[in-house]
Amino acid sequence: MNNLGFDKDLLEGLKLQDKNCIEKIYRQNFQMVQSLIINNRGSSDDAADIFQETMIVLYEKSINPNFELSCQLKTYIYSVARRLWLKKLQQQQRIGLQTDDFEQIIPVQDDVEDHQKQQDSFSIMEKAMAKIGEPCKSLLEAFYINKKQMQEIAQEFKYTNADNAKTQKYKCLVRLKKLFFAEYKY
């Protein structure tokens, strides 16, 4: 009956991006979300997209030390997926969801809004990354996105040593930061 303890473990696992936990969350909830989407004029692909975005919202929550799940994980996932899909439908054609709610829902609008803001700053970051040019782009991506070691990067980019690569990296980083804030500041 009480799944809350179990859900908490799953969230802890998600926080560490543990593959087994991610798989468990999918196994327990994917069908539910898929039914929701397909019942509301979506495809399986839409369902996969929405579920992935829901996982991202959940992940953002899991790394927030102040977040406490106040309902079953299933309920939370359903509510977020529902909200995201509703938003998508509205963007497309101002039409609301037609069915539901055989699952319980809780208000998650704020969570989804926070998520949207985060995504907005990510898209500004990616835009900045696209603008910065080579070799900065590859260098920064290797280090910050793909988390490669400096030594490895120095070899790959044919720097004479790791220190040179490092100096170059920080120069690039300052440029990226400027591009980022040129867009971000409002």
């Binding site: 991006q17 593959k19 999918y26 992935q52 790394i63 985060q118 990616e126």
Partner: peptide, 23 residues
């Protein structure tokens, strides 16, 4: 921090894609 979170999110997307492929 934004850069770091972006990297985490990409990692997560990678994991979910793998999971979906497996399932």
């Amino acid at each position: 921090q934004t850069l770091n979170k972006l990297s985490d999110q990409k990692q997560l997307i990678h994991h979910t894609n793998e999971t979906v492929a497996k399932l």
